[in-house]
Amino acid sequence: MVHDDLVTFQPGQLLARGAARLLTSYGFVSVEELIPSRGLRVDLMALGPKGEIWIVECKSSRADYQSDHKWQGYLEWCDRFFWAVDEHFPTDLLPEETGLMIGDAYGAEIIRMGPEDKLAAARRKSMVQKLAITAARRLLFLRDPEAGADWG
């Protein structure tokens, strides 16, 4: 399904779209708004060709960034962590020990690679399963909206 009308998307969703396009070019697959653990919801979680897991948090404004008090809790669920922001975002606000992407709805560029902190094997397995289950459920729901009625 192609979305020709991007007007209906929120700014963070547009950034997630562009970041996902970039990640796809590196052989990653990604899922938006994934819940790695109760109380956490990441904007974009991506699985790379070698099994690496990256999280991308999309921030559309200074206020959006300053209201996010959970991002440090995301670090234990990925091998690398990135912010995705647009070209007008004040990037000096973002911690230098995190990755940085600059983008828009059509693509992104990695400006700074986040440091790698490899997940333990059990956590990696759990996250790969969560990514796969979430993606499969969403695909099923697109094809058959009534099938997802029992997910709770």
Rank of each mutant, 00 (worst) to 15 (best):
V2C: 02
D4Q: 13
D5L: 04
L6Q: 03
L6M: 07
F9S: 08
Q10K: 14
Q10T: 12
P11G: 03
G12S: 14
A16F: 03
A16Y: 05
A16T: 13
A16Q: 13
R17F: 07
G18K: 08
A19M: 04
R21I: 03
L22C: 03
L23P: 03
T24G: 12
Y26V: 00
F28K: 07
S30V: 08
V31K: 00
E33A: 10
L34M: 12
I35D: 05
S37P: 00
L40S: 08
L40W: 12
V42T: 15
D43E: 11
D43H: 02
M45K: 03
L47M: 09
K50T: 15
K50C: 10
G51I: 05
I53K: 00
I53L: 03
I53V: 15
W54T: 05
V56K: 00
E57H: 06
C58D: 12
S61K: 08
R62T: 15
A63D: 15
A63P: 01
A63C: 01
D64F: 07
Q66C: 12
S67H: 11
K70C: 01
K70I: 07
Q72F: 04
G73D: 14
L75W: 09
E76H: 09
E76T: 12
W77M: 02
C78K: 02
C78F: 04
C78G: 04
D79E: 13
D79C: 04
D79Y: 02
R80C: 11
F82C: 09
F82V: 01
W83V: 02
A84C: 15
A84P: 00
A84K: 00
E87H: 13
P90F: 08
E96V: 08
E96Y: 06
L100S: 03
I102Y: 00
Y106G: 14
I110K: 05
I111R: 14
M113F: 14
E116V: 14
D117E: 14
D117Y: 10
K118T: 15
L119W: 06
A120K: 15
R124C: 06
K125R: 13
K125P: 00
K125Q: 12
S126Y: 08
S126C: 02
M127S: 02
K130H: 05
K130E: 07
K130A: 13
A132K: 02
A136G: 06
L140S: 08
L142G: 11
L142N: 14
L142T: 08
A147G: 10
A147K: 14
G148H: 09
G148D: 10
A149P: 00
A149D: 12
D150L: 15
W151F: 12
G152K: 12
